[in-house]
Design a protein around this nucleic acid. Structure first.
Lengths: 247, 247
DNA sequence: GGTTATCTTTGACTTAAGTCAACCGGGACT
DNA sequence: AGTCCCGGTTGACTTAAGTCAAAGATAACC
């Protein structure tokens, strides 16, 4: 195994032999961002891509850092967040395998607007800006995929602003539980994929408040809580709550 | 003057003769979205574009409406906003001449996530989705411009989430005043371009609260208020306030 | 120009959610 | 096993900001 290792930003960049490049190529092609791209272009992409590893809790970038490219999650989860001057954090996204992050500075602004850390031990693909922009220029369908991703994210943000400004915490929580429910197999038994502290930060509140509201919802018979497992008892009312935003 | 008028969505679509098309073409070319595009493509664009007029307060689209295309502001201002079930509104953007809006459904989701109304009597350019997507496919540099616009907007949203979640109203207000200051000629005397009620909605609060905080800031010697004119007295402290987010 | 309607300000009150502090319980490590 | 530490929960308290109501100030309209 010929591996070149370089320390940089706390991540370990890993060089590739032909075989590894092949598997990376295959993986990239399955990614929603690059789905449907001709192999020739994927090949080029592989040429500029770097696989980087980050350990759990490692900082990937900070707000204000110059963004010389963006990332794609291969393994693990990444948290993108903002911090207030007194240390409170607001999570903007949690990203899992296949999802890109840090794209904004590639096309506008040149620096990251937020921070990113690894929530688990992670493997990421790093795509340097210049090479990537060239590729986009040469390949309009790639641009369309990207536009779709950014548009989707814009929608999420709009929802988030709506939620933060127009709903109380119980409403946001209800909406989040239903969101989890919608994307899981067992529709009624949810496994919280984040610690409650992190969930609080995602919902724009603090652990104490989240804790209180979870028990309030349990007492009211909307849900049942058992550690990180939440069971939806009364979906109707939960939907109503997510809708009106107030308990 | 040969004008074809059609009522639709409360807007008046206006057909064009050759001369009008020429001026539209020129205008489009000066827009940041289409800057640098070859005339041939602008010509095509003109072919699919429609100029639409909306009177002040007219609804342009509602959340959930199928988005068959997007808009570009020629004259006037447009407000894009969300409404809670009990009627409180949160403004997402205020758009002026040259700025596009309603692009999200073109590339993802197919329906508008928010509402839009005309704040003034407006003239807008409407670009239908299908024709536009074709054009983007044919013209990668157009895609890059679009990516820049969406990325920029993503940044704005991130800031907004940060602001709503991590700052108190005084902090948000201070940040907004400094933002206005940065984009005006006379750096210290600001003309509020929105009614205070609308400004409250943009800052994620209500008129009463905004009013109180404006006078609080005046009393504290940060600013001076005279109707819609706000003078920055102590920029240093205002910056500090915008930074820490709390008074 | 005067009447209406809308916007703005101010006051008294309520409330959701944050702060501070104590405590519990389960790993992890020695 | 025992200690330490971190995550979660609970209680008492504070506070920013929302609600309700009324009165002034602007701006709009006939």
């Amino acid at each position: 195994m010929e591996e070149t290792e370089k320390k940089e930003q706390g991540g370990r960049k890993t060089g590739m032999n032909g075989e590894q490049c092949q598997s990376l190529l295959k993986w990239l092609g399955e990614t929603s961002l690059f789905a449907g791209m001709p192999d020739a272009h994927l090949q080029e992409l592989c040429g500029i891509a770097m696989v980087v590893s980050y350990k759990r809790r490692a900082l990937i970038f900070s707000a204000g850092d110059p963004g010389s490219g963006f990332y794609l999650v291969m393994e693990g989860r990444v948290k993108v967040y903002m911090i207030s001057s007194d240390g409170k954090e607001q999570i903007l996204h949690i990203l899992g395998p296949g999802e890109p992050f840090g794209e904004a500075p590639v096309f506008a602004g040149r620096s990251f607007p937020a921070h990113a850390v690894a929530l688990d031990d992670c493997r990421l693909v790093f795509l340097p800006r210049e090479a990537f922009v060239e590729l986009v220029t040469a390949n309009p369908s790639l641009a369309l995929n990207l536009l779709a991703v950014l548009s989707q994210r814009l929608r999420q943000f709009a929802k988030m602003v709506d939620s933060l400004s127009l709903k109380e915490v119980p409403g946001r929580l209800a909406a989040h539980l239903l969101y989890l429910s919608a994307k899981q197999a067992d529709k009624d038994v949810l496994e919280l994929d984040l610690s409650k502290t992190q969930l609080a930060s995602l919902l724009g509140t603090i652990p104490e408040t989240l804790s209180r509201i979870l028990s309030k919802l349990q007492r009211a018979g909307y849900i049942r809580i058992a550690g990180a497992k939440v069971t939806i008892v009364d979906r109707e009312r939960l939907e109503e709550l997510a809708e009106v935003g107030r308990f």
